[in-house]
Simulated scan of single mutants.
Amino acid sequence: MIDPITLIELTNLKASGQLETLAAHPQLAIKPEWMDELAQNKDSWVRRRLAENPALDTSDDVLASLLKDKDYNVRLNLAENPALVNSCAMIERCAKDRSALVRQTIAKNPSLSSIPGVSESLASDRSLYVRLNLAANLAAIRGSAKAANALCDDKAVRIRRSLAQNPAIANQPGVVAKLSTDKDPEVRLNLAYNPAIAYNPVILETLAADEDSSVRQAVASNPAIADCPDVIKELSEDEDSSVRFWLADNPAMVNLPEIADRLSKDESSAVRYALANNPAIPACTANAQPWQTQPTTQKAPSI
């Protein structure tokens, strides 16, 4: 049932020429013929307001008309309209839009994976920023191995760095393996911090032996290594005291008193300090150990 008060409000807006306000009204759908008129209005600002109106119906002819609008801001507003996030027609059309800004917006859409071929197409887009947004899109990377692999091989290092941070790559083991040996250390560093590698001991072992100490530090601080005693042992013997420091601070040490005992005697005071203040350590030993006797108020020494 149409609310008469709302109808009067809409009628007054139309009669007074306040078409921008009318086009943005959330109840505009009760007058579909007016939506069609507004979509054809010569004033682009009116069409822009209509394009961002959540009252738009994904099956409307109005949507088809706006998708062809010559003003890219109209198409951009459509791409950003939350009411159209699942619109196949909108996604497919905007993914091929001549404006890179429109394609960038679509590359962030969580419904990309439900439409075959769109993610794959955007993965080879000429715009760096389109590919960047796609690399950070959880649903798109989770749903398309082809797109994930294309981004993994992208020549632009920023793309690979972004992809290495995406938790959805956990579903793409081949991609994770490639990124773990990427020539760029920041790609490998981002991967080391990514929860996607939590249950991948092979990748953890690879990164724990990385030539870049910052990557090894990231692995040493990752609680996921709790199930990888060989990785922990390797890191506890690392030549870089910063790596050993982050390992000593890691709650993964809780079930490894032998390693903890070794670190409690480490030559680096920073490592011993980190171990002394690791809240997980008291849980794995009944008696006070040498690494627990240092006052917790002491400032961390520099490494």
Rank of each mutant, 00 (worst) to 15 (best):
Q104W: 07
A156W: 07
V271N: 11
S221F: 13
T296D: 13
P257R: 09
Q289T: 12
K155I: 15
S162G: 15
D71A: 07
T206S: 10
S121H: 04
A209R: 12
N200R: 06
V85G: 11
A23F: 00
N190C: 02
D3Q: 07
Q294K: 14
N171Q: 09
E33P: 00
A147S: 00
P282D: 05
D227Q: 08
K70G: 09
P185C: 03
S241E: 06
D61G: 10
L50N: 00
L63G: 13
S268H: 02
Q18H: 10
S302E: 13
K183P: 08
E52T: 10
T6M: 05
N12L: 12
V243A: 06
A224Q: 09
N12W: 13
S111N: 09
N133Y: 13
K265F: 11
L7Q: 03
V187N: 05
A39D: 08
T21W: 03
P301W: 01
R126P: 10
S87M: 01
A252G: 02
R131G: 02
Q298D: 13
E20I: 09
S268C: 10
V176A: 06
K299M: 13
M253C: 01
V46C: 02
T206M: 14
A135W: 03
S236K: 01
D36Y: 11
I106R: 03
A100L: 14
A148Q: 07
S162T: 15
A218M: 12
